[in-house]
Structures are given as C-alpha cells and as structure tokens.
Design a protein around this nucleic acid. Structure first.
Lengths: 158, 158
DNA sequence: GGACGGCTACTCGGATATCGCTTGTCCGAGTAAATGCGG
DNA sequence: CCGCATTTACTCGGACAAGCGATATCCGAGTAGCCGTCC
C-alpha cells in the first residue's frame, strides 16, 4: 500500500484535532509530521479531488476538512489515495489457453478465484468503512489525553 | 496487488484439478493459462520456498502440490507471493515533528491509526485464511462442471 | 483622518525529474530417460 | 536377450535487464493582507 495513505491519515487527524475552521497550510502540516512539504501537498490535492478537504488559496490559505470527522471514513481516505479500483484485478485468465475452447456458458458466471478474492476484499473495505476519523481521534485520546492540547499549542491556535 | 497472485492461484487450481501426483512442468502450466513461461517459473519458485509446491528437477519433472488442496488457504498463496509483511506499514509518524517532545508514556500504546488499519487488514486475512483451494475448486465446478475433465484432456492425462 | 491603488508575501496547483520495485528474459546446474554396446 | 555406461533432452534455479508507477521537487497562477499615497 502506498505510503501516502499514512501521511493523509495523520494530516487529517491533525486537522480533526485542531477542530478549527481556519485552514492549515501544507508547510505547517508537513512540519508537524516531519514530512516533505511538496510531496505532501500532492497527496492533499488528491484528498481535495475526493471531496474530503477544501483548499483555500492565497495568503492565510491552506486545507481544512470538508466534512465533520464523523462523516469521514477510513475507506474514503484509502480510496482517495490508492484509487477506487480493487487491489485484486481479475484478467480472465480462465478464458485463455486451455479454456479457450470452452463453452461460452461457463464464462457468464464470474471467475471463482476472483469471487473468493473479492469476498476477502469486501471484508477489508467493510472494516475500513465502519471506522471514521472521529473514532480514530477518540481512540488516540484514550491513551494520549494531552495530545490534542499539545497539537493546538504547536500550531499556535487558542 | 501483484499480478503474480492471480497467476499462482490459477496454476495451483490447475494442479488441484488434475489431482495427479505426477509433476507438471512450467511450460505446460504457462501454456494452459497463456502466461509467459519464464516469469511464471519465478512465481512458482516462490510457492516452493513457501512450502506450497514441491519441485522435481530433471526430465519429466515439474511442480506438484505439497499438500492436499484442503490444506492450502488463499492466505498462504498471497503470503507466498506478496510477502508476509502487512500492507499498511506504520512508520511512527506520531513521534516526529510536533510529537517529538511528547512524554514517552504515550508511545507505549500502539498508534491509533495503525490499530485501525490493522483491524481492517486482519479481517481481510481472516477471510483469506478461511477459504481453501478445495473450496475454490468446488465453487468453480459448481458453474463449470466439465472444466476439470477438459483440463485433464488438455494436459494429456487419463 | 479615511479611502483607494499598488505591492509584497504567501499558498495552492500542476508540470517535471528521479528512484525502486514489479515485470520479463536468459543461461547454467542437475536429473531422469533413452540409446547403443558389450557380454 | 539382458545389463550397464554414455549420451541426450528436458527441467528447475538463480542471475541479469527493462518498464512503469510511486516518490520527490520545482516553479507559475492567484489571492489576501499591508503599505504608501492621495483626497
């Protein structure tokens, strides 16, 4: 999986923690997580295209959450970075080679291998869709109660 | 996900269908699925290293299943090709940047983001481990009863 | 003193280069079968 | 005719290249705030 997913999740979590309508520029988010600013900007653009972030250009601009954290699932984030297509792509191998002269009838039903892999992938997507950014924030504060306050201080908010 | 997973699954399914102790060379398996023989050989070597296949060298050699299909799960195949490590790798971003001067106490518990992603990945792995090669073979014969017989003919068995 | 016009600094956005991994290919080591020869 | 040594053909195994996507970077377009000037 692309490393950008982790970067995107941490950036979104930081925005959720700040809980401030004001936009945060890429430079701040990058410095807060010690990431290369230019490349992080590219990833955040993908989140804007996916409708998870809104970008305000110009001075004092930056990125801010497009929806409340309760409405942003991990599935949304992964789909925004990795793309909407499934990880396992069936190329219909069964039709080639030995199966070339099989009756057409057999190819109307989906490939059994693709079906099996799809079942696992759906379980993965279901778990991702069941967890929101707000859930992750709550879980993080469970073990690190002072993190949100410290993050706001670091960003010069309040 | 690597395309080799699909190739490996189709090759293993062909061996399970033949249900013959005799080894099948890479050239036959590649021709049966219309795949590049040399590269398929490389993938099958990975399956041998993982203990899913046994290879018999020399003339009349080839690959054969190391265990009955009931004992080979899709998880085994994916792990053999893709590697045992998880798709989402936590690089401990939380410790860097703004979190650099946080109390050590907070880092003893695992990263909330990694935990959330891990939960989804475990669901994926559980589904993969729950399905065996025999299950896939049975599902395929459900919709294509003549496929096994045709495959044996094609390989010159019986 | 207030308002307006220009200027500056800052930020996003996309075009551009670089790197590593997946994909793909090739040839050598090794083995089983086939073959020819001798008894 | 039977047994054995040699040859042969075939297969796996790992070493060797190529293509492509992820990674990383830079510069231009555009905007908000600020400053100086004019009324």
């Amino acid at each position: 999986m692309s490393e950008g997913v982790e970067w995107a999740l941490h950036s979104l979590l930081a925005l959720a923690w700040l809980d401030d309508g004001r936009p945060v520029p890429t430079s701040r988010l990058a410095a807060g997580n010690d990431l290369p600013p230019a490349y992080l900007n590219k990833q955040l653009q993908a989140l804007v295209r996916a409708g998870l972030l809104v970008s305000t250009p110009g001075a004092r601009g930056g990125f801010s959450l497009a929806r409340p954290p309760e409405k942003i699932t991990l599935m949304d984030v992964v789909a925004a970075i990795e793309g909407p297509e499934e990880a396992f792509r069936c190329t219909e191998i069964r039709r080639r080679g030995a199966g070339a002269n099989a009756p057409r009838r057999e190819f109307e039903s989906p490939c059994a291998i693709a079906t099996a892999m799809r079942r696992a992938e759906l379980a993965w997507r279901r778990e991702l869709a069941a967890q929101t950014l707000a859930d992750v924030r709550a879980a993080a504060e469970e073990h690190a109660p002072t993190a949100a306050e410290r993050l706001r201080r670091w960003h010069g908010r309040d």
